[in-house]
């Protein structure tokens, strides 16, 4: 199963509901998705993993609607980001509320203190932005997606993407000023 091409795995999952083929897709894409969701959820590992699981389940249910005109990973991220935004709306988690909730939590158990500091600092800085702006900046700076790709993944107009980037970049530059070389 490890040597099978992604297109073939997708065919098998879509045509015959082959769960083994889908499990291989989960193995291949989980790391990127889980990492992205951790960065968006202020490094809340449990919440990020819950959202990632839900993303894969939704993806399996909607596999028949995957038309292959975008990369499978982009399609997956789109579902993940939509779930993240839904979660934020549902819980009405504005940035202040998030800050109050998580401020006293202990540092997560991730290898390498310096690495963890940087990852957490970025997640903290992103958390000061609105959920939509956070997703845009993550896709732009971390995933290195083009503005057009971000627009496609998030299903928002290109102009909105540009606005988010123009407004959020100075905020992140100020937030992460302590990490200046």
């Amino acid at each position: 199963m490890k040597n099978i091409a992604e297109a073939q795995l997708l065919d098998r999952s879509i045509m015959s509901g082959d769960q083994l083929a889908f499990a291989e897709l989960v193995k291949r894409h989980q790391s990127g998705l889980r990492y992205s969701l951790r960065q968006l959820t202020r490094w809340d590992e449990a919440l990020a993993d819950d959202l990632a699981q839900e993303t894969f389940i939704r993806a399996y249910q909607k596999l028949h609607s995957f038309r292959g005109d975008a990369k499978f990973s982009s399609w997956l991220y789109r579902i993940g980001y939509n779930l993240f935004l839904q979660h934020c709306r549902k819980k009405q988690l504005d940035t202040e509320e998030l800050h109050d909730e998580r401020h006293s939590e202990p540092a997560p158990d991730v290898a390498g203190a310096q690495d963890t500091d940087l990852q957490r600092a970025i997640a903290e800085a992103l958390a000061t932005l609105s959920p939509e702006a956070r997703s845009v900046m993550h896709l732009s700076l971390h995933r290195q997606c083009t503005q057009q790709e971000i627009s496609t993944i998030m299903g928002i107009p290109l102009g909105t993407v540009k606005t988010h980037i123009n407004r959020s970049k100075p905020l992140l530059q100020a937030q992460l000023g302590a990490w200046r070389e």
Binding site: Y35, V110, A111, G112, D115, L118, Q119, I122, L141, H142, K169, P170, L172, Q173, A174, L176, G177, A178, W179, R180, E181
Partner: peptide, 21 residues
């Protein structure tokens, strides 16, 4: 309190990307 420039911000994210386990 200091502010990063655009390149420094991108470099910081690149560093985080490289450290991604």
């Amino acid at each position: 309190k200091q502010q990063l420039d655009s390149n420094q911000l991108e470099n910081l994210f690149a560093q985080a990307r490289e450290q991604q386990t």
